[in-house]
């Protein structure tokens, strides 16, 4: 008999036990381990996918930000360039204006300097003319001239208008001091007598006259009483002439010092160089 029934039963039992044992010790743990690994790999892949998605998103965001930044930067650059251009134009205009202003001032200063020089030359020429005239007249002056002058003086005294005459008279009468007669040279007695006679005649008073010599008159004669003076002298002519010349030369103008003129000229030159 090939089949032993006890063995068959025993083998069935053995097989069922083996099934249970292997299920417990082999299939289940192995399948669990494989499942765990698959889950782990799946989760890792999912995580990697999520990370990739996130990375792509971040990359897109970064790219977008970069583009925005580039646009902003170029816009900024353009704006700054425009501003710089405007500023440059403004600065150039300002420099041009300043330069023109300085040039105008320089021209004015140069003109002024030339004017001053002319004035100085005129003044000097006048002074020289006066000096020469004074010297010539001083040298020509003498007793005969004094006589002539006395005549002219007396004639003028007589030609005084009424108001002047009245003022002179009142001053002469009110004054206690003697009438002072100044001449460049000492008058001869005849001249003195003539003057005294004329004063008596004109002023109506026989007050004592006092004669003085004053060389600075150059040539001439003057009567001084109580602050009032009647005179005819070359010095007086010359003085009035010099006074009128002075007043002519010293007309208020843009008088500037030479140093200032030089400064203005330097500044104008510098501005021109900068513009070039």
């Amino acid at each position: 008999m090939l089949i032993d029934w006890f063995t068959v039963i025993a083998q069935v039992v053995n097989f069922l036990i083996l099934v249970w044992l292997l299920k417990h010790f082999l299939y289940q743990p192995i399948l669990n381990a494989i499942d765990a690994r698959e889950k782990r790999i799946a989760s890792e892949i999912a995580e990697a996918d999520a990370k990739k998605t996130e990375a792509v998103k971040e990359r897109d965001e970064f790219r977008q930000k970069n583009e925005t930044f580039d646009q902003q930067r170029s816009a900024h650059m353009n704006q700054v360039m425009e501003e710089a251009k405007t500023e440059r134009a403004q600065l150039l205009d300002a420099a041009r204006l300043e330069s023109e202003d300085l040039r105008t001032r320089l021209q004015a200063a140069l003109k002024n300097e030339q004017h001053c020089l002319n004035d100085a030359l005129s003044l000097r020429a006048c002074e020289e003319v006066f000096a020469i005239a004074r010297k010539v007249l001083t040298e020509l002056a003498g007793t005969t001239l004094e006589e002539r002058m006395t005549e002219i003086f007396l004639a003028r005294l007589r030609e005084l208008n009424d108001a002047e005459m009245a003022g002179l008279k009142s001053a002469f009468l009110a004054s206690n001091s003697p009438l002072l007669v100044r001449t460049a040279f000492e008058l001869p007695t005849e001249q003195c007598a003539a003057i005294e006679a004329a004063s008596k005649e004109i002023l109506g008073s026989d007050k004592q006259l006092k004669f003085e010599t004053a060389p600075d008159l150059i040539s001439g004669i003057e009567i001084i009483v109580d602050g009032q003076k009647i005179a005819w002298s070359i010095a007086g002519y010359l003085a009035s002439l010099a006074k009128s010349v002075d007043s002519l030369l010293k007309t208020p103008d843009n008088l500037q010092s030479k140093d200032e003129i030089i400064d203005i000229a330097d500044a104008a030159q510098e501005i021109d160089e900068n513009r070039a």
């Binding site: 083996l18 044992l21 292997l22 010790f25 082999l26 192995i30 381990a33 782990r40």
Partner: peptide
């Protein structure tokens, strides 16, 4: 079979 399985599956790695 059982001992071999037991020995191997005693320290299974999920890594």
């Amino acid at each position: 079979l059982v001992l071999g399985s037991k020995l191997v599956t005693r320290k299974l790695s999920t890594q």
